[in-house]
């Protein structure tokens, strides 16, 4: 079910793009931009929800319950939930785009492994999953070379004279994840339930770059390319919406 509904369409879309552009790295970049475009309405909704949270904190009722129940955390939480529901605000809406991404990440991970399969068993599996309309037999083997990377393997940049390879993609993924997470974090409020949402965002700001950086370090560089492109597109989207403040990116502040 998972393979048929998620991995197979994703794999075929990737290879269809590959058949047009002739480069698997470029195919992953185009695919990622398409995914980000599809997710744009969700992102817009998330931004609106964050704005609503910010306005909510200015609401007289909000201030009143903060003052009235400041010594009764349980009651404060109940009243806040009531107010959220009255005003139609979801304090956790910022999580949604990330949650939606999870099946895409898993699907892409498997699609990249299958597409760049370099063993007979992997090629047999690929053959089973390709739609006949792609004329797959002419596409095989998929060229996994992109810039200095073989997209089927974890990336390292080997510089003559250095005894080890530099994980450039892992560093870039961690860095752009930090910028992107920070941009999300700066759009959420900082009081009451908003504090909880902010705490979650702080966790994201801290752990997501590390986790995605670790994935980029360990797994196929095709997946790292997806993470990097996705982060860059999201940062560009936030910048276009005027939501990116370079001052907020200074991690030594606060």
């Amino acid at each position: 079910m998972w393979t048929t509904l998620v991995v197979q369409p994703m794999l075929n879309l990737l290879l269809w793009i590959y058949s047009l552009v002739g480069n698997f790295g470029v195919a992953i970049i185009v695919f990622t931009i398409l995914v980000r475009l599809l997710l744009a309405p969700l992102m817009h909704k998330q931004t609106k929800s964050a704005e609503a949270m910010r306005k909510l904190q200015e609401h007289p009722k909000w201030k009143e319950i903060q003052r009235k129940y400041k010594n009764d955390r349980e009651r404060l939480a109940q009243e806040q939930m009531k107010l959220y529901s009255e005003l139609g605000v979801n304090p956790f809406a910022s999580c949604l785009p990330m949650l939606v991404q999870i099946p895409i990440i898993f699907g892409l991970y498997q699609a990249v492994i299958l597409a760049l399969g370099n063993t007979p068993a992997q090629l047999l599996e690929l053959a089973r999953l390709l739609y006949p309309a792609l004329n797959p037999s002419r596409l095989i083997p998929i060229n996994g070379q992109f810039l200095w990377m073989n997209l089927a393997y974890p990336e390292r940049l080997h510089i003559p004279g250095l005894p080890f390879g530099i994980p450039v993609m892992a560093i870039l993924v961690a860095l752009t994840s930090y910028i992107q997470s920070k941009a999300v974090a700066t759009t959420t409020p900082s009081t009451g339930e908003g504090q909880q949402a902010q705490a979650m965002n702080q966790m994201m700001t801290m752990y997501m770059p590390l986790m995605l950086g670790y994935f980029a370090l360990t797994f196929q560089s095709g997946l790292a390319l997806y993470f990097l492109t996705s982060n860059l597109v999201m940062i560009a989207q936030y910048a276009l919406m005027g939501k990116l403040s370079w001052d907020d990116l200074k991690f030594w502040r606060r």
Partner: peptide, 18 residues
């Protein structure tokens, strides 16, 4: 996050090659 890491790590099991 830990569950996500585990699932992705679990997905990385290398299929029999041949």
């Amino acid at each position: 996050l830990v569950a996500l890491a585990l699932v992705v790590a679990g997905c990385s099991r290398i299929a029999p090659g041949s």
